[in-house]
């Protein structure tokens, strides 16, 4: 069972206080978008063995959604950060690259 630090309230909490929300940094495609873009936004999800970015909500705590960078194979957590961003913070990406030199990078 995972432990993640909520970047909003600062508490390190166990998974039972959290609700998972799937892949992070999805770009919404609304009216006017192509079928392909909409399909990709609505249905296509990454399923990597390794570095992954996810949405979590501190559901039993402060109620905020945050994002986490995690290794799906070892469950190592590289960091958590607020949800109000369209891509992972640069310092986090640098940290992951240092720990996973063969990682192909974000996107």
């Amino acid at each position: 069972m995972l432990t993640l630090q909520c970047p909003y309230c600062g508490a390190r909490v166990e998974e039972t206080e959290l609700a998972p929300g799937g892949e992070a940094h999805l770009k919404r495609f609304g009216p006017g978008s192509s079928d392909a873009d909409f399909e990709s936004y609505m249905f296509a999800r990454k399923n990597p063995k390794g570095v992954h970015f996810e949405r979590w909500r501190h559901a039993y705590g402060c109620g905020k959604w945050f994002l986490a960078a995690r290794c799906t194979a070892t469950l190592e957590v590289f960091g958590t950060y607020p949800a109000q961003t369209t891509e992972p913070p640069a310092d986090l990406i640098a940290k992951i690259k240092e720990k996973r030199p063969t990682w192909e990078g974000y996107k």
């Binding site: 609700a19 929300g21 919404r28 949405r55 909500r57 559901a59 109620g63 905020k64 959604w65 949800a83 109000q84």
Partner: peptide, 13 residues
């Protein structure tokens, strides 16, 4: 309520 907060926090912040 969670659905509203999700869109407010993660899309239209």
């Amino acid at each position: 309520h969670g659905h509203m907060e999700d869109w407010l926090q993660c899309e239209w912040w």
